[in-house]
Nucleic acid binder design. Sequence first.
DNA 1: TAAGGTCATAGCCTAAACCTATGGCCAATG
DNA 2: CATTGGCCATAGGTTTAGGCTATGACCTTA
Lengths: 299, 299
Amino acid sequence: MPLGPSFPELASLDLFVSVVELGSVSRAAAAHGVAQPSASSRIRHLERQLGMILLERSPSGSIPTDAGVVVAGWAEAILRSAHELKAGLQAFQAEQSGRLRIAASFTIAEYLLPQWLGRFARAHPGDSIALEVANSTSVIERLHDGGADLGFIETTSPLTDLDEHLVGTDELIAVVAPAHPWANRRTVPVETLAATPLVTREAGSGTREALEAALAALDLGPPTAILELGSTSAVRSAVLDGNSPTVISRLAVAAELDAGSLIEIEVKDLAISRSLRAVWPRRNPLPPLAVQLLDSLTI
Amino acid sequence: MPLGPSFPELASLDLFVSVVELGSVSRAAAAHGVAQPSASSRIRHLERQLGMILLERSPSGSIPTDAGVVVAGWAEAILRSAHELKAGLQAFQAEQSGRLRIAASFTIAEYLLPQWLGRFARAHPGDSIALEVANSTSVIERLHDGGADLGFIETTSPLTDLDEHLVGTDELIAVVAPAHPWANRRTVPVETLAATPLVTREAGSGTREALEAALAALDLGPPTAILELGSTSAVRSAVLDGNSPTVISRLAVAAELDAGSLIEIEVKDLAISRSLRAVWPRRNPLPPLAVQLLDSLTI
DNA sequence: TAAGGTCATAGCCTAAACCTATGGCCAATG
DNA sequence: CATTGGCCATAGGTTTAGGCTATGACCTTA
């Protein structure tokens, strides 16, 4: 669902948070490289959008009202995510030039790395990090041919010639919308799942292949697809307001499970889990920046 | 630090995520209530800002490129926070009209409630929640005079006539920037802390009073203030690039501790911790919506 | 009392964003 | 094979939002 037409812009929230931090509109304006009247006007516009007074102006500066303090706290959460995106983008664009070159698989790059890189970038300003997103086999290839210093992959198979470090786990789980009949049962036999039309990713995707392999191991055929979509997001939102289940990475729906907008269904005898590992060439010494990144992940 | 001049707007990211979810620019445009060419142009603008192709266009719709999938995942994190702010704002503005009226103290409203309300609002669309922010004694007053159904406070004192439920803990801790001499020691005696000029909140603030009370209990005088600031944010950023310690709520600096941009200093013999409690009038039955909210906090 | 900081207002101007109308393209359908 | 109906892109015109400079009113501090 869209955010609505009169939602404040990131730039305005950013400016407002700066005002709160720096204690005056003028200083915040300077920090953002705009003229003071512009900043003043933006803040007033923001106040009208939100329908509340955020700052108490005085000739000696501006301090936030009670409402302002609260809104600033909320805005900071948004800005934190924005900085994470920025860090991720910079890593993306650095590509070949970085001091630390990371290759990561899809799921990790999408749901975990932004947070990790965001933290890391704030703690190591000035260090540049390059990020390449690929599938697991390509990640390993990049490590061997020297195109990357550190890799992140999800895999079940043993690794040769690579040192590794466990950084998390992922799991494929069945989920339905709260209105679905399964939502009250919370558990179904695997045969029922296999016989139910699912929303799925397209044939050939890692998620779908893992599911089909797990079913085949139980002598069950592949599930029929009632809807076949090209991205995890599309699958998720189709399940959110549709009435079909899907089997999807837990990481991709963690927020929805938390919020209760999707319900996890336990499937008896079906457990598809993958370790998330940091990997690097056994012989090459790990660059110092990589060591620090790994340290920051294990604290 | 500001986000930079050419950071994508929230509206553009929102639109792009919709395109990924809905599978076509046209549908996303309709969902956002703008004309298709406008949406198309916004997306192209976004692509030029980020310096990468996000969508693969075709006469049958648009699907994200690899980079697009990753960026969409990152953008979703920002939008999640934005929706939390929106939920908080709506609760703020509902004020008297809501079906569930919450009164919360500062720290909780700023650092915990947005997340809680964000989840809750997504799981209970249509229910309106009113939020009032005040200090702990006012919160209790609001419960007694019927102005609020449910309160959230941090307190150490026992409560009369109120039922309560523990929802977390807060703690005042000493922190310094990584460049500060204490950063390597990680621990100092309480006498040293008491003798060191600190960045503090203004006199009368809850944080400062709690610190002074804890020091007084050890027969130590109040700390001298090298800098006295009117908001938690201001204190935090002063410590971030200054060279003085502060004593501050752990919740307020959790992200910075994670990132390593602030270092926690253990102070021997000094432990100032407060329980965070949900409270409500003992006699009045808790409204059903309040029960559901409390349930969602304890899962 | 003068100086230096605060924020607000006024007036102008530019640039960005929107809309409607149109055209090219492909896929599904008769 | 042609037609229809979805998709996206382009063009041109209009509006609006946001920026800047210049100025004024106000308070604090030296």
